[in-house]
Design a protein around this nucleic acid. Structure first.
Lengths: 302, 302
DNA sequence: CTAGTTGATACTTTAAAAATATTAAGGGGT
DNA sequence: ACCCCTTAATATTTTTAAAGTATCAACTAG
């Protein structure tokens, strides 16, 4: 049995007339009769009762017609689904992100993406940059939103956003009342709250480099796995922290943010994915980032 | 696209190896490669990623495989269903019956039938013999269980059971204490409760004939549409009634049943169905009656 | 009783699926 | 690094089967 037989069967069942059905199928009547006969022979069931002048469905034929509609419909849906997945318009996307973008960049991006691709099921996982790199190698996530630069021959990276550092100080701090950008060197004697280097090498290194350029090595007083934890430590007065400027969106009465003078070292966020990644959803997502997100971020100056 | 393509696709997807899949399909490898290519071309979707040394499913292919299983499964079920209906092993049977068999013959018959054909959905409708004949002509019921003989050129009839008449009397009646079969002539002066002739001609005529043979015409005092209603009238003392002997299974403290002497006129129950009936379920049901029910009734002497 | 339907049959043509033989491209082993 | 084996693809032929043509038998309606 082939789908052809089912399509022919539907035509005859709907027309109840071999001649008209053949016409509708753009074929001659004899081969149609033969194909139906073939189908009936294979099932060893008479689907039509032919009374020389009238064709009607048997009970078995009626039931089979109902099933046939379902089958043909499913075949159509299966094809459409495959095409949709192939175009990257449906499927699953496992997306990792660092805590630092959870409150600003990520929601913006998700809203805009889901609007354009409503059939994609996004699974979100918060991970540090280092964890994301490992997950990318193991292919346990599809795309990672992390701090760049990262070093790996097997992942592609696309920069999304570059931003300067700012200083976060407890409001009780002597410098808290400054309104102008301050020089990093004025923080030389402060206790720094930092993230562990193994959590995100590029961010850690950028902070160190910032201090080195200002002529000192930061005194670490506390490590925080996440930037938001670092902020809490600042709020509690343990020390100060150099953070990406977008952290300012997190308002806190105990914290004062200060701009930095001559701060050429920046904090970069990018998207990374495995070079071997073949899923169309991933490529569609990356294209989306390049075409929609990056331009809109540039435009807003974020 | 044909079912062939789907079957081939499943084989390749399961083996992830064109050669082995071809072997399983009992064909050579090149035509298999071509058919898969054809399928992919029709969908304009790559279902497999061939890396010269390894074949794997793409995301679209994975989803398509899942759908394909569903489709092939449904095709199989559709065929089985059609065969089952054709053999009369599933489908719907609309069965009419007279009130007189509702408590004894019908339950016996239904239990035994449903045990043998559990996939048949039986719709029961209580109707008088006359109503059933009309319904058979209009094909609104498939089979009628009714009082025979009935006259109609367009229905087939099969006798199921033949039984003598008995007399039902109120317990206050002078004859109520009789223990031996009585002669019908002793009922000549009684008031008879009968069913309307239009409800069931054969039953009515049988009662009249019984009385005629005993040398009198029954005095009708009340008509009852159903035999059970007639029983109620007897219980209330309005009159007596001649009823098929199986009515004795209905016990009532107010009623006494008496056997009849020399009662050659019998009450017959049969199955009737339209000669033009083509549904396999109906034929299977009739065969069932002939093969299982009639012999078992004869055996029990009912 | 005849003209005009209907679907089936017999036979031919055409299309396409399968087989055969061969090739190109990798990967693993020595 | 080279060779051999395995893999899937290509080119070509063979075979199968689907579609087409012509015709028939059966039945209906006028």
């Amino acid at each position: 049995m082939e789908l052809r037989h089912l399509k022919y069967f539907v035509a005859v069942a709907e027309e109840l007339h071999f001649g008209r059905a053949a016409q509708r199928l753009q074929m001659a009547q004899p081969p149609l009769s033969q194909q139906i006969k073939q189908l009936e022979a294979e099932l060893s069931v008479l689907l039509f009762s032919r009374t020389k002048q009238r064709v009607e469905l048997t009970k078995a034929g009626e039931a089979f017609l109902k099933r046939t509609y379902e089958i043909l419909n499913r075949v159509h849906l299966a094809c459409e689904e495959a095409k949709s997945i192939d175009r990257g318009e449906s499927g699953q996307l496992i997306l990792a992100f660092t805590g630092s973008i959870a409150f600003e960049l990520l929601p913006l991006l998700l809203r805009s993406y889901q609007e354009k691709y409503p059939n994609i099921n996004i699974v979100l996982r918060q991970m540090t940059t280092t964890e994301q790199m490992e997950a990318l190698h193991e292919s346990t996530i599809h795309v990672g939103l992390l701090n760049i630069p990262v070093e790996s021959a097997s992942v592609h990276v696309e920069m999304l956003r570059e931003e300067p550092f700012i200083a976060a100080l407890p409001k009780t701090h002597p410098l808290a009342s400054e309104t102008e950008p301050i020089d990093v060197s004025r923080l030389a004697n402060e206790h720094f709250i930092m993230t562990p280097r193994k959590a995100g090498q590029s961010y850690y290194d950028a902070v160190i480099s910032l201090c080195q350029h200002a002529g000192f090595s930061p005194k670490k007083t506390q490590e925080a796995q996440e930037l938001h934890t670092a902020l809490s430590f600042v709020a509690s007065g343990i020390g100060i922290s150099l953070l990406p400027s977008s952290i300012q969106f997190v308002k806190n009465d105990e914290i004062v943010y200060l701009q930095l003078k001559k701060s050429f070292t920046t904090c970069k966020v990018g998207a990374a994915w495995n070079k071997k990644e073949s899923s169309p959803v991933v490529h569609s997502f990356i294209s989306f980032l390049k075409e929609s997100i990056i331009p809109s971020l540039t435009e807003r100056g974020i």
